[in-house]
Simulated scan of single mutants.
Amino acid sequence: MMNKSKKIIIGISIGDFNGVGIEIILKTFLDKRMLDFCTPIVFGSTKLISAYKKGMDLNIPFNGIKQINRAIHGKLNILNIWDEEIKINLGIPTEASGNYAFKSLEAATNSLVNNEIDILVTAPINKDNIQSENFKFPGHTEYLESKLNGESLMILMENNLRIGLITGHIPISKVAETITPDLIQKKVAILYQTLVQDFAISKPKIAILGLNPHCGDNGVIGSEDDEIIKPTITEIQNENKLVYGPYAADSFFGSENYKNFDAILAMYHDQGLAPFKTLSFGKGVNFTAGLDKIRISPDHGTAYDLAGRGIANFNSFKEAIFSGIEIFRTRNEYKSLTKNSLKVRKQKEKQ
């Protein structure tokens, strides 16, 4: 068995192999210095990785294994979870690429649950061709929430810019009816806790965006901001949390008001992701907060149009690894400090 105290063990799911996932994984570990920070284990197949290496002329050694405890520190490890050869159709989503994307994700998630890996980094999937009897979810976030403990919150982040989503992968037509005081309070609580335990921010300052244009203009363009969002923010403020808003989304980022907060909660997917990717595309990462294990990913999709051309940018994937390591260390430090604090408190009570 590996000595986990030596290195943080990163489990990596390959995503859709007809996209850029495997390319960005291999390019990341072409830099051998990455192996100083972690021990990577790719959940896939040595035959598949070898085919990619040959096709893209990437000279990167790896260690093929059949059991996680055979992984070697200082090496890129490929865990064989299937032996058969697979036909690669770069740039084209296929039924096979969806099926094997799930096999990789399922095996990596099981290892995360069983504490065989410390962090899960997921390469991009195609949310259509991965659908099956075993995967009936809109994306990674919802699948992982079903397998891990806790309630999830999707956070896109880059340096001090962190944008969480109150609603995630749902149609626009369902957003307004989904937003309730309970949901807002729940997402604020998750965001607040992750800022404290995963980012070491003792008193987080959070902004909440409005739902309607101009936050409804006093009910002229919708009543949700006045009737649901504002009263809920007031209730949260009464808990001595620094939560402010709602802010009109159209001017919040252009005015650079976002720089005054530790994190922002957007009401729906594109309200948060459109400005984030405008400001940070290729540099940001997607972190699933609120769960008892750490999952993180690059901020982009399968990019079929770039697959096989050797030009896919791997910076976001590399940043996902570094961010995951930092969150892992910060969370463990927080657990240690709060555990020791609890011990001291109990000792004082006995006295």
Rank of each mutant, 00 (worst) to 15 (best):
A200H: 08
E177R: 09
F135E: 15
K203F: 15
D182R: 10
E133Q: 13
P124I: 09
V220E: 08
A200F: 07
I179T: 00
L112G: 03
V113S: 13
T167F: 05
K103Y: 15
I163V: 15
L195I: 05
A107K: 15
S202D: 14
I170Y: 02
P181I: 00
Q185F: 11
A189S: 13
L209M: 14
F135R: 14
K203H: 13
G216D: 01
G210P: 02
P204W: 08
F135Y: 14
M154Y: 07
P171C: 11
S104W: 11
E145S: 05
I130Y: 01
K147V: 10
T167L: 11
P138G: 11
P213G: 05
N218V: 07
I130H: 01
N129K: 10
K186V: 04
Q197M: 11
E133I: 11
P181H: 03
H140A: 02
A123G: 06
S111K: 07
K186D: 07
L195N: 00
A107V: 10
E227G: 06
T141I: 13
N218M: 12
I170N: 05
T109S: 15
I201M: 04
D198G: 04
Q185N: 08
P231Q: 08
S104D: 13
Q131T: 14
I125L: 09
I130N: 00
L120F: 07
I119V: 13
D226Q: 11
E177D: 05
L209Y: 06
N212H: 09
M154P: 05
P231L: 04
D217L: 05
N218H: 08
K127R: 11
K147C: 08
D226I: 13
D226Y: 03
P171K: 14
E142G: 07
F137Q: 15
A123V: 11
V121D: 00
C215D: 12
T194V: 06
E227F: 14
I201P: 02
Q193F: 11
Q193K: 12
G150N: 10
R162T: 02
K103I: 05
N212S: 11
Q185H: 07
I208R: 00
H169P: 09
G164C: 09
L156C: 09
S111N: 15
N115Y: 11
P213S: 10
I163L: 09
G150H: 06
I201H: 02
R162W: 03
L183T: 06
K187D: 03
N134G: 15
L183I: 07
L156N: 06
G219D: 10
I155M: 04
N160H: 15
M157D: 04
E151K: 14
N115L: 13
G222K: 03
T141G: 02
L209K: 05
T194M: 04
D226N: 12
L148W: 09
L195Q: 01
E145C: 04
V175A: 03
G150Q: 03
G150A: 08
L183K: 09
D118I: 10
G216C: 01
S173L: 12
G164W: 00
S152A: 15
A176E: 12
N159R: 10
K174F: 08
S152W: 08
V113L: 15
E116K: 11
K136H: 13
L148S: 01
L148V: 08
N212E: 09
I119Q: 02
I206Q: 00
G219Q: 06
F137V: 14
E158P: 01
